[in-house]
Simulated scan of single mutants.
Amino acid sequence: MQDESGSRADQRQQDEMPAPAAERIPSENPPIFNLPTGILAALGIVIGIYVLQDFVFSERTNQWVAVEFGFSPIRYLYPLGEQSLAWLWTPVSYSLLHGSFEHLAFNSLWLAAFGTPVCRRIGEVRFLLFWIVSSIAAAALHAVVNWGEPSLMVGASGVISALMGAACRFAFGDRQRVHARLADREPRLLSIGQALSDRTVRVFVIVWFLGNVAIAFGLPMMGADSAAIAWDAHIGGFLLGFFCFALFDPHSRKAA
């Protein structure tokens, strides 16, 4: 009887003991899709706008929204003082509009995947600034490539490409993630050379650029509408994110 009581007491003692540190690691390192506030807000805005356009606004209103908030290179051929101020806000506002549910769903998925580590690293305020600057960079290259064209560009793909470029500087590779987890801090920002010397980053960049070059030459990548994909905006955003992310990253000053 005493032995049995002693066993039960020992069992209760073991049950009350805290879990080993190794078992607690997942709670200290939440999964990537535990979305931060900035990403939830961005998703809420782009989804909310699409819902309004698809279910509330009339066709005439949607046409006005597309013209006044979508980005068009031809706008800059005319004197800015002789038109509305749409030339001022459209290099950013176009990134909040989407042309179809598939377009919205695809961009939302990649925004959650690549925006999450970037937003966690730099915070909501810097993330907003990064969104604005990267959307302008994407629109700028699109305007250069399509100068004078009456095209109309919408979608967050340029910003998402910038997030992909930024992630290449700190989030790729097991080595970076393991070191950060062990040190309980954000991974250090890799230099351009260090990032390109990492095999994971190098393969990702090559495949990403080859895909966009294929789109530029008209190779169908995502269905019949793939020819309308703004590959140049993707490249403009990616280059901004990859080469300029240190300007937005508060941790870059702490790098050794």
Rank of each mutant, 00 (worst) to 15 (best):
M1W: 09
M1Y: 10
E4F: 12
E4A: 15
R8P: 08
D15G: 01
A21V: 05
A21R: 12
E23H: 09
E23R: 13
S27H: 11
S27K: 08
E28H: 11
P31A: 05
I32R: 15
N34F: 05
N34I: 01
L35S: 05
G38V: 01
G38L: 00
L43W: 00
F55I: 02
V65I: 15
A66T: 11
V67G: 09
G70W: 10
F71M: 10
P73D: 12
Y76V: 05
L77N: 13
Y78E: 13
P79K: 03
L80K: 04
L80A: 05
Q83N: 02
L88E: 02
L97A: 02
H98I: 15
G99A: 14
G99N: 15
L109K: 08
A113F: 14
G115A: 06
P117T: 02
V118N: 01
V118L: 06
V118H: 01
C119P: 08
C119G: 07
R120P: 05
I122M: 08
V125R: 14
F130T: 07
I132S: 04
I132H: 02
V133Y: 03
V133W: 04
A137P: 00
A138S: 14
A139V: 00
A139N: 02
L141E: 01
V144A: 14
W147N: 00
L152F: 06
G155E: 00
G158Q: 08
S161W: 05
A162P: 03
M164N: 10
G165D: 07
A167M: 11
A167Y: 10
C168G: 04
F170I: 00
L182W: 09
E186W: 09
G193F: 12
S197A: 07
R202V: 00
V203K: 12
F204W: 09
V205M: 10
V205D: 08
F209S: 05
L210D: 04
I215R: 12
A216V: 05
F217W: 06
G218I: 03
M221H: 09
M221L: 11
M222T: 14
A227W: 07
A230H: 08
W231K: 00
A233C: 11
I235V: 15
G237V: 01
G237H: 06
L240E: 03
G241R: 07
G241M: 08
F242N: 09
C244W: 02
L247A: 15
A256Y: 15
A256P: 15
